[in-house]
Amino acid sequence: MIDINATLIAQILNFLVLLVILAKFAYKPLLQAMDDRRNRIINDLDSAEQTRLDAEALKEQYAEQLAGARQEATEIVTKANQIAQNIHDELVEQARVEQEAMMANAKERIEQEKQQALLDIRTEVIKLSTLIAGKIVNQKLNSEKDQKLVGNIADDVLDRR
């Protein structure tokens, strides 16, 4: 049963033939395909990781920009508020000054009008008084001396008032 014979040599040749045929025509393409797939998966994973990192960087950049924009917007609004407040204060001040000037002007004019009116009244009173007195005393008080006297009296009266 355990006869070692030429079958041994034949088997070695058999196997070598099988090995050579398979190695040459079958394993090369298959191992190549498996290696290609392996490399491709590794590449894909690498590029996916790279893309993820890029996206992360972009996201960070955007967040930074957004924060910057927000900061800027806040500054702009603050500045605008400041400017508006300044304008408002200026206008109020201007209005106040103008109003005061107008008030002073009006007071002055009122005073002038008043003086004018007093003068007019005085003249009118003198005329009336003279007329009335003249009519009353008729002939007796029409000399210049009399006129003057009456004026003095009239002034006395007006000043007393």
Binding site: N5, A6, A10, N14, V17, L18, L22, A26, P29
Partner: peptide, 28 residues
Amino acid sequence: VINMQTMYMSWLTMAVVAVIVFAATRKA
């Protein structure tokens, strides 16, 4: 001296292996 039964079966085995491997790698 060659054991022919052994040889036949060895060839059959080789053929089966070759068919399977070639079928798998015909277009890898």
